[in-house]
Computed example of a mutant assay.
Amino acid sequence: MNELQAKAGIQISRPIATVFNAIVDPSEMSNYFIETSTGKMEAGKTVTWKFPEFADKVPVTVLTVHAPVSIVFEWEGAPGNQLKVEIHLEDRGGNSTVVKVIEGDMPNTEAGIKWLRGNTEGWANFLACMKAWLEYGIHLRQGAFDYMKPA
């Protein structure tokens, strides 16, 4: 059986340094993804993310940061599974950056396929929200997942 990886990518009309900073700096990331973080993403550090729609706090262990081209971290990407997330940035010139996210690996099982669907959707949402924020100053995530909060 092949292992499964969630993958998503998007092109953002901003310089690579701006996009990179929006990923590692919690004051930027809070405009499109998280509510709060205990710190900036730096190699060797563990930060804790809080998402606006959930009470849980998520520890994120930053493995490597190579400004401005990549960030690699581990987190509990599926219940009971520490998964590696790689974010790669490519300068496309003309004030444009391609961002690609890869998360994995999960077994090719029914549970793995369910994870793949959800996390691929989640990373596509992350990228779309980041694009909306960086290009247009729109906070797409705000209120978008309120329906998921316990009643």
Rank of each mutant, 00 (worst) to 15 (best):
V69H: 15
G9H: 03
D25R: 00
Q142L: 09
G9F: 03
N95E: 15
S27V: 03
A17R: 06
G44H: 01
K45R: 03
A132K: 07
I12T: 06
S70R: 11
F51N: 01
Q142W: 12
M41G: 06
N108K: 04
M29A: 08
N108H: 09
K84M: 11
M130K: 05
M148A: 08
Q142P: 02
G94K: 09
S30T: 10
V60I: 07
I34E: 07
G104H: 13
N31W: 06
G77Y: 07
E74C: 00
I23E: 04
N81Y: 14
A111T: 03
E103D: 04
G80W: 12
E135M: 07
N21Q: 05
K149S: 02
C129H: 14
D56M: 04
N31L: 03
I10R: 08
G80S: 13
M29T: 05
W133R: 10
N108T: 14
P107L: 10
N21G: 03
G94F: 14
A151F: 12
E42Q: 05
I23K: 04
H88N: 09
G143Q: 08
I12Q: 09
A8L: 07
G80Y: 10
I87R: 03
L116D: 15
K149A: 06
M130Y: 02
E135S: 05
E53I: 01
F73A: 12
A111I: 04
Q11M: 01
V72S: 10
E35K: 15
F126T: 13
T48L: 00
L89T: 14
A124T: 12
P79S: 07
T120M: 11
D105S: 13
P26I: 11
N2R: 05
M130F: 02
G39A: 08
K114S: 14
K114V: 15
Y136G: 02
Y147R: 07
N31Y: 05
E3D: 04
V65T: 15
C129K: 12
G77D: 06
N95S: 14
F73C: 12
M130N: 06
F20T: 00
A17L: 00
L83F: 10
K114Q: 13
A8C: 10
S30L: 04
G137F: 09
K57D: 02
F73L: 14
